[in-house]
Design a protein around this nucleic acid. Sequence first.
DNA 1: TTGCTCCTCACGTCACGTGAGGTGGC
DNA 2: TTGCTCCTCACGTCACGTGAGGTGGC
Lengths: 148, 148
Amino acid sequence: VTGLLGIGEAAARLGVSERALRYYQQIGLITPSGRTPGGLRRYSEDDLVRVNRIRELQTLLGFNLDEIRDQLESEDRLAAVRAEYQAETTDPIRRRELLAEALSVREELRATVEAKIAGLERVRDDLDAAIARIYELMGEPQPLSAGP
Amino acid sequence: VTGLLGIGEAAARLGVSERALRYYQQIGLITPSGRTPGGLRRYSEDDLVRVNRIRELQTLLGFNLDEIRDQLESEDRLAAVRAEYQAETTDPIRRRELLAEALSVREELRATVEAKIAGLERVRDDLDAAIARIYELMGEPQPLSAGP
DNA sequence: TTGCTCCTCACGTCACGTGAGGTGGC
DNA sequence: TTGCTCCTCACGTCACGTGAGGTGGC
């Protein structure tokens, strides 16, 4: 029951600029849950979760906003299928198609994430080697032991 | 003894645009090892390694070109210290300072990399959970076992 | 001479940053 | 009425993309 937040509070909690929030809205990535009669944007908890997801895909995965839009649309479609599941609205063939599509999108993303992790682990191991060689040059034992 | 490459060959091998190579040069991140009398850029193997490093810091770490410049400068300074080590040029106090600085830069970067890896592992685990739930909705057993 | 690669401007784009000038609610 | 937050333009910036028009070497 936190109620809705103004753009300033929302931006501060998310660690993004107000400009970024307005821009995401401008290109259709999020719409604040409400506006005051005076025209001020009001953000819900769910809005904040969505923006956090946008930033995650942006900073961790390096996606641009077009790719993020596609990903969010797929996530929205899966949520819709889940909701329909309760209501038994869709016919089972169509439902299976939607689930299969949601699955392939997620498995593709998983592969991308896995590749990024592997790349970063290589970078980390290179850094460890460089750090070890600096300690050697300094003529000192390495202070941190690194067991497997 | 591969000799030097033209910008087209260099760009193709690196997987970057010619424009990007010219831009990196314009802002002082790389300088091709040579130019032909006619003014054509010639890239060495070492040039390619440096550009690969730029792209790695850009795509895996999300650094901007200013941050990359700082990182590369630190790496260049460490290489200089290493070269001086052979030649015994620098006095040992100055040398220790340079090594200490190189060390702290690398340990900071290591922490950044570690944080990124942790974030991506969280994203991956979330994806695994989502994928498992989709299989449940499809009413099928999960085809891939996931041992620890 | 003909292709092909490469050259330097220079304007366009994406994802915002940064004021400029005006309104809104405690 | 005074502050403070928020509003909508609109121009600037970073890291290039994309032609435009011209040169270079096999």
